[in-house]
Each structure stands twice: as C-alpha cells, then as structure tokens.
Design a protein around this nucleic acid. Structure first.
Lengths: 255, 255
DNA sequence: CGTTAGGTTGAGCAATATCAAATTCGGTGG
DNA sequence: CCACCGAATTTGATATTGCTCAACCTAACG
C-alpha cells in the first residue's frame, strides 16, 4: 500500500500528493502515513480566484486534480501567466514565512484540493519539511525557466519548452506516460503563458503537428519525439538533485 | 550616528546595508549596532563569477558597491539576465534553507562586498530576521516583474520599467535623487535583461532621449518625467507594505 | 597614434501581431 | 437525432515590431 503502483488508473487524492513529495525526497513510513491522512477535500469551479493580490481566499492547500495559473494583469488588460499549478502542487503553502500576495491564482479547470496544514505542522517529520523546502525551490526554478523562455527563446522554442515542462511535472505524479498527458488549456491560456498572440500560438502548434512533433487535440497532448523537442527547446529537467537540499551546497543561492 | 543622513556623499559600507534593511523594516538599536559591526570587506573585479551553477564561490555577502547580474545561458550562447544585484543587496544569502544553484551571478562592475553571516546568525534580533525574509520576498517580486516585462510589454515599456526599477531600488539606499543615478550598464547588458537586441535597445534609448524622457550618458541616468514614465510602463513600486510580513496575511503566497 | 569597446545609423528582412472572416467542436434544448 | 449556440480553433491578408548585417563613429587607453 505504501509502494505506489503507477498502473492505477485514478490515483486517490492523497496519493497524488504522496507521489509529488516522494519525487522530491524519499518519505519515511511516518511521513507517508501522515500524508495519507490528508482529507478535508474541497472543490472550486473553473475561473475561481484562489488567492488574489487582495488577501488570501484560502488556507494552504494541495491541488489534487485540475489546473490553476498564477498571473498578473497590466492596467490595459494584457495578462501574463507567471506559472501553472498542477496536481500535487500547493497553493498558499508558505513554509518559509513569506506571505506575498504578488500574483493572483486562478483555477483554469474545476479544482479539487485538500488541506495542507497537517504537512506544514509536521515539524517532527524532517522529510516533509525538506520536501516543502524543495517544492519552494522547484517553484523558483520554474520561474527562472519562464524568464529565459520569454526573454530569449523564439515562439517555437517557448512552446516546446513549456510542453516539456508540463510533461515532466505531470510525470512526477503519474499523470503522463510516454509523452502523453491531459492538457486542459485553451490556446488563449497558452498565449498568455508564452507571451504570444493566440493566432501565433495556433500557427506554431500547426507547425509542430505538421512536423510530427506533437499530437494535440481534445484536451490531450502527446509529445512524439521528446529527444528532438528537448534539443530544440534546450530543455533541462529541473531535477531536485541538481539543486539538492544538502546544507553543504549553500551559498550558491540566487538571493 | 545611527540616524542616517542622506546628504552624506559617500556612504560607508555598513551604512549601505543599514539603509537597505531600514527601508524594509525599522531596525531597533541592537540590530543597528550589529549591522555596523559588519566588516570583512572584499573586492572582486568586473566579470568575476560570484556563484555559478557549479557550486558556491562565496559565503553569503552584502554588496556594498558595484552591480552584479544573475543570469542564465542557453546552449547556443544566448544569454538572459534574470535580475540585478545592486548595492545593499545580498548574494548567496540563504535564510530559508534553500540552496539552489539555479543561476550564475556575475559582477558587472568591480564589486565591494562584506560578510553577511553575522546578520544571518542574529536569530535573537527579530528585526533582522524579518528584514532577511522581506529581502527574499522583494527578490521574488522583482522576478515576477521581470516575467511580466518580458512576456507582455513592448520594448519601449520594458526599458522604461527597468529604469524605474533601478531608480527606486537605488533610492532605498540613497543612491538616487530626483530621478538621477549612476547606471554602469552597457547597452548589451540592457539588451540581455530586456530580451531585446543591442541595436533595438539603442533605438529605444534614442527615442526616449528625443522625447526628453531620459538623459543618459557617461554611465549616468536621469529620468526627466517619472510620472509619465510610470504611466507608460504601468510601473508599481514593489513596496514591502503591499506584501507585508504580517503572519495574518499568509495564505496569499504565490506558492 | 593604433586598437578596442561601446555606441549609432541605415537598409532589408524575419518574426510576430492584428484584424477579420470562416470553420469546427462540445454541449444543450427540443 | 437534430438544430443551434457559443467558445475555441483555423485561415488569410496585412501591419508592425524588432532583428540582422554591415558600416561607421567616438572616446578611452596603452
């Protein structure tokens, strides 16, 4: 029961979170048990604002199904998506006392979440504390990826890179296999994430289809040649190992 | 002596750090005293790599003069600057145990730094701990600004926005007055920060000069109509107040 | 002086945006 | 099952932004 079998078609709610944490750090039995106790499931509809720049709307929670986006608006209505919240990710989680309302988080699809406070309170479970730290580090790494994508990559590269990110992140919780995963985003959302126009996103996707690099329809994506895509996008998997939490390596922080 | 007089022409090393922290949170006498004890001054030349993705080269330090940049390279040599380290900012500071080597930090000018570990160790000085947390929050806010700039602003807006950021950040440590400050960046660096080509940066700067919005030469910048610039760039000052550190407001975090 | 790094300018081009008009697709009510 | 509706996608034509290449200029410096 505590060895997650990836074959399971519909992983349970807590199972998603367990997989996510396990991908970051091995969980001892105590930690696994605690994660499986997580409950207090809640639902919120697509379009709901989880936490805005105007104060929190939500206690810290893990998303167990559905997608959300962190975004900002410009005064004239332009919109930039800063990053996505995928199943297994946290919203409003704030281990480091660092309560910034720097962005708005919006549900892109209907969302199921569970209360995350038991994990935050589990100071006695070092593995969990470490996992939370690593999640924060991973979030920052994704943000840096986003800056590079927007600043120095072409439209074509940006989209490949973002699709690879989705694939790898979903893979961590068992929601992608062989380059194939559910992608519940409209091209408009993709445009706001990549800093492109909707029309141009559409054209790039067409091109990728023509080149047999992706298969994309009905809310489902398949990456048909991941090796090639990785080369095109200069994609490096943000692995916990590369910025591992060992104290010895401190000092290389970005702050 | 502990009431910083902004008129001072050449603020001392520790004074820069004191001002920076004071802009974030009021420092009690104990904290002020501790900051003034900071010493162990070091210099490093322009171009030096402070901390790379290959391990730390430096203990946590405050920069007291000079500029550095955090950046990433793509495989083909394209370069994206993620953010700048200005006087008063920290390098390798890592209060939250979060030692990621996610970017390379490079000195743009010769740099003077002082050891920051005494501040990190001062767990008994809550004001300092809070200030370090706020610095981390501010750094994240700047990163989000950078994403929006690159993703959804025009070349013209990006440059205005970045110049305003420099002005406000330098103002916090008394290094800008009336829109005027030293700007030791080549147009190439500006290009790598804004995701533009050198030539285009040059043209935008020309335009801003023609429009009497800026005066820029000899490593010195003057913003001639900040109100107008702020409107153009949709610039909002990242104030600590807006994402203040009060525990009550947690939950609105971006993670 | 020669050299070099940085800045400036022009011409042409490529990438991407904008506008407008289909067309497809997933429901939903009849 | 069918008709219809709105949202999402697709396509074409055209405009704009920003890039590339190449030259030239200028100031600092040995």
């Amino acid at each position: 029961m505590n060895a997650p079998v990836l074959a399971a078609a519909k992983p349970s709610y807590a199972e998603i979170v367990a997989r996510r944490l396990e991908a970051l750090v091995p969980l001892d039995l105590q930690a696994q048990a605690l994660v499986r106790t997580l409950s207090d499931r809640q639902t919120c509809p697509a379009g709901a604002e989880l936490c805005g720049e105007r104060g929190p709307a939500l206690r810290p929670r893990f998303v167990v199904s559905g997608w959300a986006a962190k975004l900002r608006w410009l005064a004239d209505g332009r919109r930039q998506i800063l990053g996505f919240v995928l199943p297994g990710d946290a919203v409003g989680l704030c281990f480091k006392p660092h309560p910034l309302a720097l962005a708005t988080t919006v549900a892109i699809t209907p969302l199921h979440t569970i209360d995350a406070t038991p994990v935050l309170r589990a100071v006695d479970a070092p593995a969990l504390a470490e996992a939370v730290r690593l999640m924060a580090g991973m979030e920052e790494a994704l943000l840096l990826d986003q800056v590079v994508r927007l600043g120095r990559q072409t439209a074509y590269e940006r989209i490949c890179h973002l699709l690879l990110e989705f694939h790898d992140r979903l893979g961590d919780v068992g929601l992608s296999q062989n380059g194939s995963f559910a992608l519940p985003l409209t091209q408009e959302v993709l445009a706001d994430a990549t800093g492109l126009s909707i029309v141009h996103v559409n054209r790039v996707l067409q091109q990728l289809r023509r080149e047999q690099m992706i298969d994309l329809h009905g809310g489902h994506a398949a990456l048909l040649d991941m090796e090639h895509l990785r080369r095109i996008a200069d994609y490096r998997r943000p692995s916990p190992a590369s910025w591992s939490g060992r104290d010895a390596s401190r000092g290389a922080a970005s702050l």
